Deep mutational scan, measured.
Amino acid sequence: HNLTITQGKLFFHYNPKLCLSEIHKMEEVSGTKGRQERNDIALKTNGDQASCENELLKFSYIRTSFDKILLRWEPYWPPDFRDLLGFMLFYKEAPYQNVTEFDGQDACGSNSWTVVDIDPPLRSNDPKSQNHPGWLMRGLKPWTQYAIFVKTLVTFSDERRTYGAKSDIIYVQTDATNPSVPLDPISVSNSSSQIILKWKPPSDPNGNITHYLVFWERQAEDSELFELDYCLKGLKLPSRTWSPPFESEDSQKHNQSEYEDSAGECCSCPKTDSQILKELEESSFRKTFEDYLHNVVFVPRKTSSGTGAEDPRPSRKRRSLGDVGNVTVAVPTVAAFPNTSSTSVPTSPEEHRPFEKVVNKESLVISGLRHFTGYRIELQACNQDTPEERCSVAAYVSARTMPEAKADDIVGPVTHEIFENNVVHLMWQEPKEPNGLIVLYEVSYRRYGDEELHLCVSRKHFALERGCRLRGLSPGNYSVRIRATSLAGNGSWTEPTYFYVTDYLDVPSNIA
């Protein structure tokens, strides 16, 4: 807008934040220059609390790290170098490059900038070799853009010569660093050979998330399962459950009422301010606690030095998902009996873990797994792929695949051998790939016309006998059925096997 004052003059007093240069501009645009008398524009009460600059400061050096910015700028000295009290560095987070010096300023003089007072450097006698002032900004957020400017702080001049310097606002972004852990990993099994893994992005990506790394490792069953005799009275049979499938998407929606109208769909109840505040506090606490764990609990591995020492970490090797089922080394339970199943799973520490690289999504279907087997899954978020990966501390989750139908069934015939004193040795093959492992066998036998009897055969007993022995049988026709019990439950009964026990007292003698 054009402003013209045809008559009258300007009068400025007691404006401590208004620089004289701005008042002189007002004289020019209003056409009143030359009308004012000496005392109409006070030299001592206008701009006496402001830094009124008329020179431009330029930054000469900028260096960044993930949490620091090192700045240096060209030296500046007023005509009387004693008038320079120091520099004021202003900075704040700036997602967009549209910041002005006066953003967030209120009537009390406060604003949204963080201000650092910096002492002037030592003055050199040689004007050509003056030290460049600077400042190291610490405690910054990774991968965050900051708006920065600097200006001088000078003393009051009796001659009211307006001098000083100020830089333009520059924008500097800190470097990326390792992201925080992925949030809320959930693993479920939808079949006997697959596990579905879902997660949420890290709360602090500290860069642009480029991919996720998912490692999985087959877990050995508890050692007590191999040692305890679950045929003993009072000892509860062990059981394991597989990871249940995901709930429906509708039930997972946030901010939804727990109660549904019987007449149909209901609208979600909005969260109160107290609920939102509580969630923010919980989120802040979780982030602080995660940072504490990362800094205190997890110790970084030592990389190899120039002395030739090897990095103890196993090298990563990509495998196809079809090879995942046989990740671990199978060892027989008892070496003397080769027909026992290889369900003991000690994992070799030198073995390469299978892994998958996930790009542009937060889910993965891990296939080719062994049925009813526990897996430990390790999830890392990465925001750099080359020249070397920059990934987060791992988040861990466990899951067990679903049982395989008929995996616990005894394959092959049940054979028998009759000894003296009416002892019958029953023999059968253990299931080759049971659900988890076989903890015991149930032997059901009966003599024709009598009630059915049951015998429990422990895992250890089966390994020693290759089956079991029935003792003290009365003469007669017998039928026997056997079924295995694994961590997933009972298998199917075998087809009945028949044998006849004679009275050993009636056996004919070869003595003449």
Rank of each mutant, 00 (worst) to 15 (best):
S203T: 14
D204L: 07
P205R: 10
N206K: 09
G207I: 04
N208R: 04
I209T: 08
I209Q: 04
H211S: 02
V214S: 03
W216H: 06
W216C: 12
W216Y: 08
W216K: 14
E217T: 13
R218V: 02
Q219K: 05
Q219N: 11
Q219C: 04
A220P: 10
A220V: 04
D222H: 03
E224N: 12
E224I: 05
L225D: 09
F226D: 07
F226C: 11
F226M: 09
E227G: 14
L228E: 15
L228Y: 03
L228F: 13
D229C: 07
D229M: 15
Y230P: 03
C231T: 02
K233P: 13
G234A: 06
G234R: 13
L235S: 07
K236P: 10
L237N: 15
P238I: 08
S239W: 10
R240S: 08
R240Q: 02
W242M: 05
S243P: 10
S243H: 10
P245N: 09
F246M: 15
E247N: 14
E247Q: 12
E247R: 11
S248C: 05
E249P: 11
D250N: 15
D250S: 13
D250P: 13
S251K: 14
Q252R: 07
Q252I: 08
Q252A: 10
Q256S: 03
S257G: 04
S257D: 05
S257N: 04
S257M: 04
Y259D: 04
Y259W: 06
Y259H: 04
D261T: 13
S262W: 06
S262L: 11
G264V: 11
G264E: 07
E265K: 08
C266M: 03
C267Q: 06
P270E: 04
P270R: 03
K271A: 12
T272A: 15
S274A: 15
Q275W: 07
I276A: 04
I276M: 11
I276L: 04
L277A: 07
E281H: 11
E281T: 03
E282G: 10
S283D: 08
R286I: 10
K287S: 07
K287L: 04
T288L: 11
T288K: 14
T288S: 10
F289T: 10
E290F: 04
E290A: 14
D291C: 10
D291I: 11
Y292S: 07
Y292A: 05
N295M: 12
F298W: 04
R301E: 15
K302C: 04
T303I: 06
S304C: 03
S304M: 15
T307E: 15
E310R: 07
P312L: 14
P314Y: 15
P314Q: 06
S315C: 07
R316M: 06
R319F: 09
S320I: 10
L321Y: 06
L321V: 09
G322D: 15
D323M: 15
D323I: 14
V324P: 09
A330V: 12
P332W: 13
P332Y: 03
V334G: 12
A335I: 15
A335V: 10
A336E: 04
F337C: 11
F337K: 06
P338N: 11
P338E: 08
N339L: 10
N339I: 10
N339E: 10
S341H: 06
S342C: 03
S342A: 14
T343W: 09
T343Y: 07
S344G: 04
V345K: 10
T347Y: 09
S348L: 11
P349S: 08
P349D: 09
E351A: 11
H352Q: 12
F355H: 13
F355G: 12
E356N: 13
K357L: 14
K357M: 10
V358M: 15
V359K: 07
V359A: 10
N360E: 14
E362M: 08
L364S: 11
L364R: 14
I366Y: 01
I366R: 02
L369M: 10
T373G: 03
G374L: 10
Y375I: 03
Y375M: 08
I377P: 01
E378S: 12
L379S: 02
Q380I: 12
Q380C: 10
Q380M: 14
Q380F: 15
Q384E: 14
Q384W: 06
E388W: 06
R390L: 08
S392G: 01
V393T: 11
A394G: 14
A394Y: 12
A394Q: 13
A395R: 05
Y396V: 06
Y396K: 15
V397L: 14
R400Q: 06
T401L: 06
M402I: 07
P403D: 09
E404Y: 13
E404D: 11
A405S: 07
A405R: 08
A407C: 01
D408F: 00
D409V: 05
D409P: 02
G412R: 11
G412T: 04
P413M: 15
V423M: 05
V424Y: 08
H425Y: 12
L426S: 02
M427A: 04
Q429E: 15
P431R: 01
E433L: 04
P434S: 08
P434H: 08
N435R: 01
I438S: 04
I438L: 12
V439M: 05
Y441G: 00
E442R: 04
E442W: 08
V443E: 00
S444Y: 13
R446P: 00
Y448V: 10
Y448I: 14
D450K: 13
D450S: 02
E451F: 11
E452V: 05
L453Y: 01
V457Q: 04
V457K: 13
S458Q: 03
K460D: 07
K460P: 11
H461G: 09
H461T: 09
F462S: 04
F462E: 02
A463C: 06
A463R: 10
E465T: 08
C468L: 04
R469K: 02
R471W: 05
G472E: 07
S474Y: 13
P475N: 08
P475W: 12
Y478K: 01
S479L: 05
S479A: 07
V480M: 09
I482Y: 01
R483D: 00
T485W: 08
T485F: 08
S486N: 00
G489Q: 15
N490H: 09
T494P: 01
T494M: 14
E495C: 03
E495P: 05
E495K: 15
P496C: 08
P496F: 10
Y498V: 06
F499R: 01
V501N: 03
T502Q: 07
T502R: 12
D503W: 12
L505A: 09
L505T: 15
L505C: 06
P508R: 11
P508L: 14
S509R: 06
